[in-house]
């Protein structure tokens, strides 16, 4: 009796080992995969070029940062008219609150827009050059879809509602990097870069001034 039982036990174990081995070498799907949701994949649609714009932006500093934003939308009343609960003598029932917590890893590019440079900003006299560069600005704020991490999401968030949260997160990122004096650093670096470029272009006396940023 004991021998038969052991035989069956070994057979079951062997079968299990074979199944697990086949799953490991991916000949058969794992048990978990049978009830796993298939990922939603997008179709490979065409990419259409809408605009081509010429730029002349001197990017001198990139600031990386990670910011968190929490947004709660309080659930409204189940009744359209606030008098209804009083009239029916029932409590004012409300929908559940919606909460979205996002973590965003973004980067901010700062520098100078050289397209704003006019003829009167450049003064050349033999081997001397004097240049007044426009003020340093934030040129790009980049938080792409892959840079967001949804930490918590409760309730049904519409596309427009979620977008508002992402825009708030972007504003928070800008405020954070501005505290790191990114514009001052970008201006200083642009000045140095332009001085080096003008020196390399054959000028002996180089003067570069940058329009200061308003505080």
């Amino acid at each position: 009796m004991r021998k038969t039982l052991t035989k069956y036990l070994v057979l079951v174990l062997l079968l299990l080992a074979v199944i697990l081995l086949f799953q490991r070498i991916q000949w058969i799907p794992s048990f978990g995969d049978w009830f796993k949701s298939k990922p939603v994949e997008i179709e490979n649609t065409a990419i259409v070029i809408k605009e081509i714009n010429a730029l002349a932006q001197l990017i001198t500093v990139t600031a990386y940062n990670e910011v968190v934003i929490e947004e709660v939308i309080k659930g409204g009343s189940l009744f359209n008219n606030p008098i209804v609960p009083t009239l029916l003598n029932v409590p004012d029932l409300k929908y559940a609150n919606k909460k979205l917590v996002l973590v965003g890893k973004g980067k901010v590019l700062a520098g100078i827009d050289l397209a704003k440079l006019t003829d009167k900003d450049i003064f050349v006299n033999r081997d001397s050059v004097s240049m007044k560069l426009p003020k340093a600005t934030i040129l790009q704020v980049i938080i792409n879809p892959s840079d967001y991490d949804t930490f918590e999401e409760t309730g049904s968030w519409t596309d427009a509602e979620a977008r508002v949260v992402k825009l708030k997160l972007r504003d928070k990122l800008i405020i954070t990097v501005l505290r790191q004096n990114i514009l001052q650093k970008a201006a200083a670096k642009a000045k140095l870069l332009m001085e080096n470029f003008l020196t390399a272009s054959g000028f002996k006396k180089v003067t570069v001034i940058i329009t200061p940023n308003e505080l």
Binding site: S37, K38, V40, E41, I42, E43, T45, A46, I47, V48, I49, K50, E51, I52, N53, A54, L55, A56, Q57, L58, I59, T60, V61, T62, A63, Y64, N65, L109, G111, L114, L139, Q180, I182, K185, K189, L193
Partner: peptide, 27 residues
């Protein structure tokens, strides 16, 4: 690095569009 110095001159910007089309019917 929180702050990185760069020396890039951006000279062109392409604005491209794409339609995201997905159907969740595979499970």
């Amino acid at each position: 690095m929180a702050l990185q110095q760069m020396n890039d001159l951006a000279t062109v910007e392409y604005v491209v569009t794409k339609i995201i089309k997905a159907n969740d019917n595979k499970t």
